[in-house]
Write a protein that binds this DNA or RNA. Structure first.
Lengths: 224, 224, 224, 224
DNA sequence: AATGAATGAGAATTCATTCAT
DNA sequence: TATGAATGAATTCTCATTCAT
């Protein structure tokens, strides 16, 4: 036995844990910085400060700026998907479930603004990075599974059309929720509206209404 | 061949002494560069090269990078609005007009990708710049005027609801058209779909359908 | 006779005069700018603006920045010497004349601050330029002639020593007047005094007193 | 010879990892450069070279050019005041002490030419910077304390007047010492004199003489 | 002849990244 | 190992000077 092994208590603190914690802090800081400043605008210095680690730490953990960006982008999906698991629609009537899903999605975007910001940044870059994150497609959205369930229930009850693809429909929902949040600043300046909580609430209702009418077999007669 | 004729290319380029033309070229190049690279990622060097002017010209015409960015942002609205004037819907039945407006909007976003890119960039920056472009609210979208007309015609004919605000409804249309174009790269990578012309066409139809059902007084019965 | 010569009235305005006036304005502007900003800090752009001429004019009249600087430096001596001719001491008793000369010199420096500033600039540069202005030594200070006269009168009257070199003594006078004006800003900050008109007046009196005592044959007994 | 030994000079220089030493070298280099070239004429590149550090070091230690200039200006006072502590006049008769103080001051200016140069530069700039160095007034000149002592001793002995303010009198001494050193180049060119060590020595004697006569109670009778 | 248009060569400043302890 | 110290390679912006009409 080596001396080192013979006295494991010499280690002042559990390094493994520390390393893990540092990694986490760096990732969180990177998420914040990249989403706030974009890829080119983000500063490694700032990330190091926010994460309270030295810059060499960042490089030793992640490699370089691009790799850190990729890790942050992937992390944003992981966190978003994790958040989406909190949505509960199983017990609701299909139409209410749709409305709830819309409301939830919008709120999700609003309360995690770094997600939209990172997506915008990545699309600005032509998706160069996301295509290199091999497993990103596997981080599937729980919402799509839930949406599939709702649509099937609705179709089974004869309320909803049965030709709707859940993934495609999810993109439509996301479209309606994404734009007002993503573009709140330009919308505010150009249309002189205040994109606040109330405004977004109305949008969510309107969107829910629109989507339900679209789903109804009779073309939407009746009013939720 | 005379010696002079044998190397006429030595003159790097006939430096036109035309201030207005130079300004234009700079603005076009800036539009391209800022939309392709974002604010922080854009390079004045690159803009100078693309515009075929020297860097000092840019500074003498526009001030500094921020001011050039602001000019490009404003210009993007001007150009977009100008393009929107080409849409003709006056002779169409209201429902067809709505479908045409959606199709046009989507196509507009697709064929002028710098607009979406610049909006994303500006929203990433918290709208700092657009709020300083004093007259941006005055560069009103012709689409909204046209949409108002269509909605009024539809309401007069008893087909459409009469409680729809054109500006708000335009935002909804834009939402549906913006997201798939803006996020085509991440969508493609995550959902393994190819966001191509055909895909977008389908989206446009679906969106048109959805919006019309939403507008219909009877809640959407019948099918365009 | 050429057509041009046959109709001298065709010339819209007397070019010769204009050229002369432009030259003057450039020189005045250069004096101001070089003294306010130093050699490296001075801007040709600013000089052109102040002089209300185009930049190429400056280059065609003066050659380049260094030549313009040299012209301004020379001009500063010309103007200062011209101003010095206004001093009248012929009718005064020698001691009063000395006091007047001191007072005048100090006031001269105060009211033409560009002179001190230009001298500082030139000495900062190691006198590179002034040694190239061939005739600068010929622009002799009228003050030295006047001072010589006063000293001779004083010596003749038996009041003043007769071993004083006017040029050397002038340098001493200048020393006492130059420093408080030249260094008014640093003196003000370091010694917390306000170098204003009143303070300078006192300095002038003190300096006059000191110089007179130095000149007196008896070593200064008595008090002006 | 090993290959390694054959080209040990390839390493440009042993980059000492000593922050304090680097700071010092930068400050010294800045003192030199700013005093030699003025504020606008000074080059950060040159300072970096002289200090044997990279430019980013300068920025990381001092902020920007203006801040570095301010630090250099302050440092010039610190160094000058430190040098002044070497003057010893306690054991001398008051008149000799005054002469020594004058001689010392002149010599001080001559042997530290960057001080005068920096003061000229700062006054050229209107004292903008020195007013922002909060504590510059606290870096008091030891000379003034010493001068006060000499004046008191002289007054106590009945030799000197007792109405002389030490600070004011110091300014007078500085005036006489400053000008010939500061303006040596222009004086040399205009008066065709060589401002060399001998010339300055004579000036110092003359100045000492003049000041002592001014201080004497009887108005200067007698001759040092 | 006079000048608006234009630029080459810098100069300050920044930033991702690495060194050396 | 963890990090303060350090820097090469840009990048924005400036300025004396010239071009072309």
């Amino acid at each position: 036995m080596t001396p080192a092994a013979s006295s494991p208590k010499r280690r002042p603190r559990p390094r493994k844990r520390d390393a893990e914690a540092s990694r986490r802090r760096i990732l969180d800081a990177a998420l914040e910085e990249f989403s706030a400043q974009g890829h080119a605008g983000a500063r490694i210095d700032t990330i190091a400060e926010k994460a309270e680690v030295s810059k060499p730490m960042i490089y030793s953990y992640f490699g370089d700026k691009d790799a850190l960006y990729a890790a942050a982008l992937r992390e944003s999906y992981v966190q978003i998907r994790a958040g989406e698991r909190e949505l509960q629609t199983d017990d609701m009537p299909p139409e209410d479930a749709i409305r709830e899903l819309v409301r939830f999605t919008l709120q999700h975007f609003v309360s995690r603004p770094w997600f939209i910001a990172l997506l915008n940044t990545e699309n600005l870059r032509g998706g160069d990075t996301i295509t290199q994150i091999a497993d990103v497609a596997e981080i599937q959205s729980p919402l799509i599974a839930k949406l599939g369930q709702i649509l099937r229930r609705g179709a089974a009850e004869g309320i909803f059309r049965d030709d709707i693809d859940p993934a495609e429909f999810y993109i439509t929902i996301a479209s309606l929720c994404y734009f007002p949040v993503s573009n709140r600043h330009t919308l505010g300046a150009v249309f002189k509206v205040e994109i606040d909580a109330e405004w977004l609430d109305r949008k969510a209702q309107e969107a829910g209404e629109m989507l339900i009418r679209y789903l109804r077999v009779d073309g939407g007669a009746g009013n939720g």
